[in-house]
Simulated scan of single mutants.
Amino acid sequence: MKLAVASLLAGLALAACPAAGAGAASLDARYEVSLLGITLGTASLSGGIDGTGYKLDMVARLTGIVGGVTGGRGSGAATGVLVGGKLAPKTFAVSSANSSESRTVRMALAEGTVAGIDIEPPIDAKPDRVPLNDSHKRNIVDPLSAFLMPVNGKGHDGACNRTLPIFDGAARYDIKLSSAGTRKIELDGYSGPVFVCQARFVPIAGHRALRPSTKFMAENRDITAWLAPVAGTDMMVPVRISVKTMIGTAVIEASRFRVDPGVTATAARR
């Protein structure tokens, strides 16, 4: 699984949660990954949130013929605290591998700024790679923490209207979200409304400027995310993410979305 694709799919939500009244819950979600309607693999998201902190874990792997050929798999973890009414990520780590390469990214963060980073093996230097500087590592959120979406006490309707400043360790980009209505869904653990967000990908630094895929994604108008409420909290989490790619539409869609209100992030860590 390529780091950039995984980060984009994970980065379609911004973590910035109110400390007061945030509530507590544990989350257990399972997603199916498909391309052109063909199931390619699965992903799981688990963890917990409460009024003081959160912990999230994600595991993804390709299955079937594609998985057998590529060996594609990935995992990630993120932790953070709530400070001054906003979610503040503290740690982020992601590892991905396939039959030809593997990479691990680890970041430490403080007050929305990258305090330390390790990428192994390092990202290759390329003439068309847009340079990163210190400003690109401030006021950001990591992709996995970004799966937590606040409603800010103003009702769920405003959940989509925001710009998300994402840094995945290798690239800095914005995801611009806007509201595209609501739907009703029914799946294991949740039945009810979801809020549909239209998304735009805006590369800022760390990307390959001359790559056709960069131009394609910057002009892409077919990216959406569906958000469902996490019972017991003031947050929402994506249950469906759809991204048009150069070879077809990729979809990550929940088949299970189970929430246990009242279970704290501390308890979920055990």
Rank of each mutant, 00 (worst) to 15 (best):
S96L: 14
R73G: 13
K126Q: 12
G158F: 01
M149G: 01
G84A: 09
T79Q: 07
A108M: 09
L62Y: 00
A267N: 07
L132G: 05
G48P: 04
I204E: 14
L12I: 08
R30Q: 15
A19M: 12
M236D: 02
I241D: 00
A110N: 12
D134T: 07
P89A: 13
P212T: 12
R221I: 13
P229Y: 08
G72N: 05
V94Y: 01
V33T: 06
S7Q: 02
G72D: 04
A159G: 12
L87Q: 04
R129N: 09
W226Y: 11
L45T: 03
Y54T: 00
R61A: 14
A13F: 06
L14F: 09
T249C: 09
K137D: 13
V105P: 02
S213F: 11
A180S: 12
L227R: 02
A146K: 00
D124G: 08
L35S: 06
S213D: 13
L27F: 04
N220R: 06
G48M: 02
T233M: 03
V81A: 07
S145D: 13
A231R: 15
A267G: 06
L210A: 12
V243K: 00
A250T: 15
D260C: 04
L62D: 02
V259W: 00
G74M: 13
T163W: 14
G53R: 08
A170T: 14
S99F: 13
G181D: 08
V251N: 03
L82H: 05
A250Q: 11
I223G: 01
E111G: 11
L3M: 09
G262T: 13
I241E: 00
N220F: 04
A268L: 09
A108H: 03
P150V: 12
A22E: 10
N220C: 15
A125H: 05
F201H: 04
E253R: 10
T91I: 03
A24L: 10
G153R: 07
A231C: 06
K137M: 14
A93L: 10
K2L: 10
C17K: 02
D118A: 14
T104G: 05
M246L: 09
A108S: 15
D168M: 00
A16D: 15
S46P: 07
V151M: 12
L177K: 01
V33N: 05
D50G: 09
G41L: 00
G74L: 08
A209R: 14
L82I: 11
V151D: 15
S242P: 07
F257C: 05
S96I: 11
P261T: 07
V5G: 10
V5T: 12
V237R: 02
D134N: 11
K55Y: 11
N152S: 12
M58C: 11
V105R: 01
R256F: 07
A16M: 10
S46N: 09
P193R: 04
G189A: 04
V243L: 14
